[in-house]
């Protein structure tokens, strides 16, 4: 790998009681790349996400982000350091409007606090206007500009996924984790999504790690892929190498994903 790594995991291991969900996951993710994490259901992909983003305390191993050890840092601090994520089962703030969802994402970079807002200080008002503007721009990026005042929970499925991405972008991440962004999308939408992911990488100078079941997406946009099976990394490499790897084919045997690949 030629570019310097923005995120590295060393021996990342998660045990739940006697069960090892992920064992010794090692990855070095180059800055500016789009990489994938694949594997059959229950292979431990989301567990990896949860360890990287601080939702789980790894049983063993470390996560380094931009050269700093962030192992065991609570989720909100991980986000503050520049890592954002989406969730496999979309988790929006359902009662808020679309705009409010993105505004919440902006909060982590907000300088003025609650009491300045209550007092109505000019600095606070100015920042509030700036955040509003930034949020609207982000909504335009994900093509939700017209729906800013709708209730987030009432959006159609695809729009909810895009809103989740906009919300993550609002935290100004350098590293973005997408958990099954193409789930539930039709082939057309999937095609658009691929373009969209490349687009936001360029526009926001991101490094992207995604979990995906749709092999077309993974093979189409990922530059490097890790394959997990029962928590063990059974293969890693460029898409072509993964496609040809007999171990990977075996792990997916019987899964429809093989057919797509």
């Amino acid at each position: 790998m030629e570019a310097e790594a923005i995120l590295t995991t060393r021996n990342l291991t998660m045990r739940f009681g006697g069960l090892t969900a992920v064992s010794a996951f090692n990855a070095a993710i180059p800055r500016g790349s789009i990489v994938g994490l694949i594997g059959p259901n229950g292979a431990g992909k989301t567990t990896c996400f949860n360890m990287i983003t601080g939702f789980y305390q790894p049983s063993e191993g470390q996560v380094h982000f931009k050269g700093r050890d962030i192992t065991g840092t609570p989720p909100h601090k991980v986000c503050h350091s520049g890592i954002a994520r989406t969730f496999q089962n979309i988790r929006l703030f359902g009662n808020g409007t679309v705009l409010e969802n993105v505004m919440v994402g902006c909060h982590v970079r907000q300088a003025t606090g609650w009491w300045q807002a209550v007092l109505g200080l000019p600095s606070s008002r100015k920042e509030a206007r700036a955040l509003m503007e930034k949020s609207r721009e982000l909504l335009a990026v994900v093509d939700l500009g017209d729906l800013a005042d709708e209730k987030a929970g009432a959006l159609p499925y695809g729009a909810q996924r895009r809103l989740e991405i906009a919300r993550a972008l609002a935290t100004e991440p350098a590293f973005l984790l997408l958990d099954e962004p193409a789930a539930g999308m039709n082939p057309n939408e999937t095609q658009e999504l691929m373009g969209f992911v490349r687009d936001i990488r360029r526009r926001f100078d991101l490094t992207i790690l995604l979990i995906e079941h749709d092999m077309k997406v993974v093979m189409g946009i990922c530059e490097h892929i890790w394959v997990l099976d029962y928590g063990v990394t059974i293969a890693e490499g460029c898409p072509e190498a993964i496609r040809a790897n007999p171990k990977v084919i075996e792990a997916y045997l019987g899964e429809e994903a093989v057919g797509h690949a």
Partner: peptide, 13 residues
């Protein structure tokens, strides 16, 4: 946001 989904709020920093 915290009321609606605490985990998502944490992920948002």
């Amino acid at each position: 946001a915290i009321r609606d989904d605490e985990s998502a709020a944490k992920a948002m920093g």
